[in-house]
Nucleic acid binder design. Structure first.
Length: 427
RNA sequence: GGAGAGAUGGCUGAGUGGUCGAAAGCGCUCCCCUGCUAAGGGAGUAUGGGUUAAUAGCCCAUCGAGGGUUCGAAUCCCUCUCUCUCCGCCA
C-alpha cells in the first residue's frame, strides 16, 4: 500500500508516478473521498468525546450520590447521531481502503519507461550459448525420449497444465531443489523455512496478490473454510513478519523456502501450452529478505546475485533484464528478471524474478522494526526473488545439456545429488 | 471428535459496569547518589489514527476478533478465532 500520508499531501505526484505504469489514478475521486473521510471522522470523534464527557460526568454525579435521572434524560437521543456518523465513517473508510489496496507500488526512479515485455532493458549477459553440432530438441522431446516426461498421464489425472515426471527427471528435479537449498543456506547464509502451502486471504492481501488478482489464485473454500493455495512462497514467507516489531539486530532476515506454487493461469489460454514452462503446479526455491529501509536497494542487487549464482553454478547461459515500468509487478518498486537460454526454443525465458517492494507489503501487513530502543516502530522493507524456479531450471538443464544420442549430461554440481551419475539416459 | 481452562501493555500478572489505557513486579531509558560492573532514590517507558511545523500539546480508538446490552463495557450477553490440559484417533 502506498503511504496514505503521501497521497494526502501530494496526490498529483503519486498520480504522475503511477502513470508510468500505465495506471490511471482518478485523483479527484480520491480527494473527494478523502475529504469526506476527514470531515466524517472529525465529526464522529467530536460526538464520541461529547458522549464520553457526559458519561463521565454522570458517573461522577452518581458517585457524589446525586440524582442522575435528568442527566440520563439529556443523553437519551445522543446515541442516534453518533451511530449514524460511525456507520458513515465505516463505509467511507472501507471505500478508501479498497481504493488504496488497489493501487500498485510506486516505481523506483531508475526503472526504465515502457509499456510491456519488449521494453525491458537488458543489463548483462552471462555465459555463452552452446554451439550444437546437431539440431537441439526442446525439453518435451528430450523428456519423452528419456521416457521420463509424461504429460498424458498428468492430463488423465488432473487435466491440462500438469506434468508427471518419472525416474531420471523426477530425480533431477529433486537434485536441483536440493542443490539450490544447499547453495543458499550454506553459501549465502539463508535460513531455510518450511511453510504452509495453504494460506488465508489476509496473507495474500499482505503481499499484494489480493484483492486485485483473485482470478489468478486457486481457492479452496467450503461452508466453513476459505483458503488459497500459495501462488509463490513469497506469500507465506514474507508474511512471517506480519504484525511483528523486529529489533535492529534481527535484521536483515534472509529466508529461503522450497514450495510448490499453484497458479490458475486464467487468461493465459493457448500460451506456453507445450511442456513444463507454464503449469498450474510447479516448484520454486524462493528467497525473501526483510531489511531496514536504507538497505533495500542494495539488497536487491545481493538477492539477484544469489539467484544468479545458481545459474552460474549450473553453467546455464542467462541474461538479466530490468523490467520496464509497464511490466513491473503490482507490489514491486523495481524488478530484475533472470532469463535463461533455452536452445530448444532459441530464446531466453524467465527463470527468476527478483523484486524490491519497499514498504509496500510491510504497510499492508504491519511488518515493522525498531531502529533503536527509543524509536517508534517503523516499516521494514521486503524483497523476494526466485532462486530459482525448479521446473524451468529442469527445462534449462535438459535443453542445454542434451546430447546427440538423446541422453543428457548431468551438470557437475548436481552429480553428488544423483549418486554420482554423469549422464541421464533412457534405460 | 469428546471434556475442560484460558486470551489484559516488552514480559509476569491484578482488575471493579463509571477518574482504567489499565495496579504491582520484572525488564528497559534517563537523572541523582555512591571511589570502582553491588545496593539505593527519582522520573519515564503501548500501538494506531486525527489535528499540527512538531516524534509538543489536545482529541479518538484499541484489554484475542466481531456483534449486542448500557448514558457509560477490559468488566455483562452472543458468535467466532486461537492457545493450553486430558481422552480418543492418526502420518
Amino acid at each position: 500500500m502506498i503511504d496514505p500520508k503521501l497521497l494526502r499531501t501530494d496526490v498529483q505526484a503519486v498520480a504522475a508516478k503511477l502513470a508510468r505504469r500505465g495506471f490511471e489514478f482518478d485523483t479527484s475521486a480520491f480527494s473527494d473521498l478523502e475529504s469526506t473521510r476527514k470531515a466524517v471522522q472529525q465529526q464522529t470523534e467530536a460526538l464520541r468525546k461529547a458522549r464520553n464527557d457526559s458519561a463521565k460526568s454522570i458517573g461522577q454525579a452518581k458517585a457524589r450520590g446525586e440524582d442522575i435521572a435528568p442527566l440520563l434524560e439529556a443523553q437519551k437521543n445522543a446515541g442516534a447521531e453518533l451511530a449514524e456518523c460511525e456507520a458513515k465513517l465505516t463505509s467511507v473508510s472501507e471505500q478508501l481502503e479498497a481504493l488504496l489496496m488497489g493501487l500498485p507500488n510506486l516505481l523506483a526512479d531508475d526503472v526504465p519507461d515502457g509499456a510491456a515485455e519488449e521494453d525491458n532493458v537488458e543489463v548483462r549477459r552471462v555465459g555463452e550459448p552452446r554451439q550444437f553440432d546437431f539440431e537441439p530438441l526442446d525439453h518435451v522431446d528430450i523428456g519423452e525420449a528419456l521416457g521420463s516426461l509424461d504429460t498424458q498421464a498428468a492430463s488423465r489425472v488432473s487435466g491440462a497444465r500438469f506434468a508427471v515426471l518419472r525416474g531420471p527427471l523426477a530425480q533431477l528435479h529433486r537434485a536441483l531443489t536440493q542443490f539450490m537449498l544447499d547453495q543458499h543456506t550454506r553459501e549465502h547464509g539463508y535460513t531455510e523455512v518450511y511453510v504452509p502451502y495453504i494460506v488465508q486471504a489476509d496473507a495474500l492481501r499482505g503481499t499484494g496478490q489480493l484483492p486485485k488478482f483473485a482470478e489468478d489464485q486457486f481457492r479452496i473454500a467450503d461452508d466453513e473454510r476459505d483458503f488459497y493455495l500459495i501462488p509463490t512462497a513469497e506469500v507465506p514467507v514474507t508474511n512471517l513478519v506480519r504484525d511483528q516489531v523486529l529489533s535492529a539486530d534481527e535484521l536483515p532476515l534472509r529466508f529461503v523456502a522450497h514450495t510448490p506454487c499453484f497458479r490458475s493461469e486464467a487468461g493465459s489460454y493457448g500460451r506456453d501450452t507445450r511442456g513444463l514452462i507454464r503449469q498450474h503446479q510447479f516448484d520454486k526455491v524462493e528467497l525473501v529478505h526483510i531489511v531496514p529501509p536504507a538497505d533495500s536497494m542494495a539488497a536487491l542487487e545481493t538477492l539477484t546475485a544469489h539467484a544468479e549464482a545458481i545459474l552460474q553454478a549450473l553453467a546455464l547461459p542467462y541474461r538479466v533484464v530490468t523490467l520496464c515500468a509497464g511490466d513491473t509487478g503490482f507490489s514491486a518498486q523495481k524488478t530484475y528478471d533472470l532469463e535463461v537460454w533455452l536452445p530448444g526454443q532459441q530464446t531466453y525465458r524467465e527463470i527468476s524474478s527478483c523484486s524490491v517492494c519497499g514498504d509496500f507489503q510491510a504497510r499492508r501487513m504491519a511488518a515493522r522494526w525498531r531502529p533503536s530502543a527509543d524509536d517508534k516502530p517503523q516499516l521494514v522493507h521486503t524483497l523476494n526473488g526466485s532462486g530459482v524456479a525448479v521446473g524451468r531450471a529442469l527445462v534449462a538443464v535438459l535443453e542445454n545439456y542434451q546430447q546427440a544420442d538423446g541422453s543428457v549430461t548431468v551438470p557437475e554440481v548436481l552429480r553428488t545429488y544423483l549418486g554420482g551419475q554423469s549422464t541421464l539416459s533412457a534405460d
